[in-house]
Amino acid sequence: MRVVICEDEILIAEHLSTIVKSFGYDVVGIAHNKKDMKELLKRTDPQIALIDIRMEGRYDGIEIGEHILLNHNFPLIYITAHSDTEIIQKALKTKPAGYIIKPFKAMDIFTAINIAMENFSAARTETFIMIKDGYKSVKLYHYEILFLKSDNNYVEVYTDKTLYIERISLEGMLNTINSDRFMKVHRSFAVNLDHIKELKSRELVVGKHLIPVSRKYIKEFKEKIGLE
Rank of each mutant, 00 (worst) to 15 (best):
L140W: 11
G29N: 10
H32G: 11
K105Q: 10
K224I: 15
L148V: 15
S214P: 03
A190C: 10
I87F: 07
E7L: 11
A116T: 03
I51H: 09
N175H: 10
L41C: 09
S201V: 11
V213L: 12
N73P: 01
R43L: 05
A97W: 00
M173L: 15
V205I: 12
S83Y: 08
K95L: 10
L199F: 05
N192S: 13
H15T: 09
K42T: 07
K139P: 00
I62H: 03
K90G: 06
K216D: 05
L210G: 06
R181Q: 13
V138T: 07
D160W: 02
R167N: 10
L170A: 07
V27H: 01
D133G: 11
H15F: 04
I218S: 03
A91K: 03
N152A: 11
G65V: 05
A112C: 08
A122K: 12
I48Q: 01
D108F: 07
R43S: 12
K90P: 01
M173H: 12
E220N: 10
L40Q: 08
S214L: 09
I145H: 04
F120M: 06
Y158T: 06
D45F: 08
I77N: 00
L163Y: 05
M1K: 02
Y217R: 01
N152H: 13
I51S: 01
V205F: 00
A112Q: 12
V3P: 08
I79R: 03
R124C: 08
I53W: 01
R2W: 01
